[in-house]
């Protein structure tokens, strides 16, 4: 048998593109096969008409996508998918618009020992609180409007971003800071012209990694209480087992996360090539 460990034995050309697709293809085939089996069984039991709802067929899925993404909903007179996407994205973006707060906190903690000493324990504590455990408190305190959902995202994301920014800032070699001081940098310049630019690509990366936590919190908030939004809709459709619509919603969210993740990755690699070592 040939040695598969060797570094130069990598899939080339067509294989390099084909191999990653195989698991996806397999998953789809398995799903369609299971769906087919279940529908056949259901049809046998129910005089030739399948009542299977858990695993919609490809045709049913296409119909489902049309219902949520093209046709207007009778009750609300809105195209649900876009309506919900807009609602969720808005909450998410508003929450992330304040991401500068934890970045500034972490940055200063990493540079100034007094702030580090004062805040490290508290921020670590905040980071340990499971954000979803706070849903009840947040809704009780902040009501049922948009604010609690936005705050929940912040609660889930900000402590982690603050802590990782702090660690990055602390990791900046002392040599860089001392060398800049010896060239006349002020404390202000040390923070904003030396430390921040050096850690910025890493901070962006930690923001990127925080997207998943942020989305979990947003969904949890929307599950709890909302009148629109991707999480709310899934929660609603669960009651009537509308799998033909739930599955497109889930795939759509995955795609949104993927795009957001890629955009930030692209931003880092295009603008901060020096950070890729």
């Amino acid at each position: 048998m040939s040695n598969l460990l060797r570094g130069d034995r990598r899939p080339k050309g067509l294989w390099a593109h084909l191999l990653p697709m195989i698991p996806f293809a397999l998953a789809i085939i398995v799903y369609l096969w299971v769906a087919h089996v279940r529908h056949t069984a259901s049809a046998l039991e129910n005089e030739g008409v399948s009542r299977e709802k858990v695993t919609p067929t490809a045709t049913q899925l296409v119909e489902g996508i049309k219902t949520v993404a093209v046709k207007k909903d009778v009750k609300t007179d809105k195209v649900l998918l876009w309506f919900d996407t807009w609602a969720s994205v808005k909450r998410f973006v508003i929450a992330y618009a304040f991401i500068f707060l934890p970045i500034l906190v972490g940055l200063h903690m990493g540079v100034f020992p007094y702030l580090e000493s004062a805040l490290k324990g508290f921020v670590t504590f905040l980071g340990m609180v499971p954000p979803l455990a706070l849903t009840a408190i947040i809704i009780v305190v902040l009501g049922v409007e948009e604010t609690p959902k936005i705050v929940l995202v912040m609660v889930g994301v900000f402590p982690t971003v603050a802590l990782s920014t702090y660690l990055f800032a602390k990791d900046v070699p002392n040599e860089l800071i001392e060398s800049a001081l010896s060239r006349g940098a002020s404390q202000f310049e040390i923070v904003y012209r030396i430390v921040l630019p050096v850690i910025w690509p890493k901070v962006l990366d930690s923001i990127r990694l925080s997207f998943m936590a942020g989305i979990q919190c947003l969904l949890a908030g929307e599950f709890m209480i909302a009148s629109q939004g991707l999480g709310y809709r899934i929660y609603l459709m669960k009651r009537t087992i509308q799998m033909d619509m739930i599955i497109p919603y889930v795939l759509w969210m995955t795609l949104l996360i993927f795009i957001a993740d890629r955009l930030v990755s692209l931003w880092i690699s295009k603008k901060y090539g020096w950070a890729q070592r």
Binding site: P173, E175, L176, E178, S179, L181, S182, R183, G184, I194, P197, V198, W200, Y272, W274, A275
Partner: peptide, 18 residues
Amino acid sequence: EINRDRGIVFQKYSVMPN
């Protein structure tokens, strides 16, 4: 304190990576 009177060169990490 450190000031502009005295310049420094370390063994490494003196140069800004960015």
